[in-house]
């Protein structure tokens, strides 16, 4: 190994896990994180399905293995170009690094729910997103959420699988998140009615289906298959949803005290800027393009540039963690001249 420095861009769970493994393999990872904390979106989450594990605890646990890793907070990559067999990097804090490999683990950004204006996010008083609700579960106050809601509605696929919103891809985690959050709401407010409006339920992971069955059988959560067409607000501040129940073939109207929008995942805009610096390819969906989507998901088309996590597409937490470990090993092998 000539140059053991590895630049990890993004200190979310992918970056943290990769850095930890790289450290164990004898590399010297440097994490560049744009915010002031590690853990990314997961750090702001409350509990993770399917085991209802505490997300902050997971982040804490992962951070514990990062002793000896340099982390630059509130820092971005200002410039990056190929130099010899590695990369020369300028950071926004003025630091300059020479590294043998770069791991892009910039993750995703949440779809801005106010772009789906018909759902009234930012217009009506009682409309929140999945991430707002999760923060509230975690203890952050939120006056949009009533003290004792009688009826709570969840709308799936807000900004996902939506050509009009410019995102044809499925965000993968929201079906399960909605079910998880619906159950949590029901547990918090046992007398409340909880409704989920979905177009498809994509419950592919271990124990996901059990969650769904439990939500219906044990918690009495209502599932309506059909997209919500519009949301209005009545004089009492209730949110009024209109949808079509496509299984029953009838229009449906619901007065709710709280509406939760399952905002989808988009690629981080900054990632595309990074891609341009090193001439890495961006895919048609805006995420990074892997060398292939089966065998070399971690690899880019440029030597020494690797990917981990949601920067190449929507991912769950376990997928992200597994990919981070794989990327660490790939980088180690790359630095040692092994394919």
């Amino acid at each position: 190994m000539e140059n053991k420095n590895v630049l990890v861009i993004g200190g979310g769970i992918a970056g943290m896990e990769a850095a930890r493994r790289l450290l164990q393999l004898g590399c010297e990872p440097v994490i560049v994180e744009q915010s002031d904390h590690l853990g990314g979106h997961v750090a702001g989450w409350h509990k993770l399905f399917p085991d209802m594990m505490s997300a902050p605890e997971l982040v804490e646990q992962m951070a514990a293995g990062l002793d000896g890793v340099t982390v630059y907070y509130r820092t971005r990559v200002a410039n990056m170009n190929r130099l010899g067999s590695g990369y020369s990097v300028m950071l926004s804090n003025g630091m300059s690094l020479q590294c043998g490999a770069v791991l892009i683990s910039t993750g995703f950004r949440l779809f801005d729910a106010s772009k789906k204006e018909e759902y009234g996010y930012g217009v009506y008083d009682h409309v929140v997103t999945n991430s707002d609700l999760e923060a509230w579960f975690g203890g952050a106050p939120d006056d949009r959420i009533p003290d004792s809601p009688a009826r709570v509605a969840f709308v799936h696929c807000v900004g996902s699988r939506d050509l009009k919103a410019g995102n044809p891809q499925c965000s993968k985690v929201c079906c399960m998140t909605a079910i998880k959050q619906a159950i949590e709401m029901k547990e918090k407010f046992p007398s409340a009615e909880v409704w989920c409006f979905y177009m498809d339920l994509r419950l592919f992971g271990k124990k996901y289906e059990d969650f769904y069955i439990a939500a219906q059988r044990d918690h009495g959560i209502h599932f309506v298959r059909g997209r919500v067409s519009e949301v209005s607000e009545d004089i009492h501040g209730h949110v009024v949803l209109k949808a079509e129940d496509t299984l029953a073939g009838t229009p449906v109207k619901l007065n709710a005290d709280l509406l939760v929008l399952m905002a989808g995942m988009l690629c981080n805009d900054d990632t595309q800027g990074l891609a341009r610096m090193v001439h890495a390819d961006v895919d048609s969906d805006g995420f990074m393009r892997s060398r292939d989507n089966i065998y070399r998901i971690n690899e880019s088309n440029r030597p020494g540039i690797f990917f981990a996590g949601a920067c190449t597409g929507t991912k769950t937490v376990p997928e992200t963690v597994a990919e981070a470990r794989a990327a660490a090993l790939d980088i180690y092998n790359y630095l040692n001249g092994r394919d």
Binding site: D234, I235, H236, V240, K242, T250, P251, V252, K253, N255
Partner: peptide, 20 residues
């Protein structure tokens, strides 16, 4: 709170809705 308007006539009106 969920009104199913039979026939999909275009007016999917819940009683509570109009009164409101």
């Amino acid at each position: 709170g969920v009104a199913g308007a039979a026939g999909g006539a275009g007016v999917a009106a819940g009683a509570a809705g109009v009164a409101g």
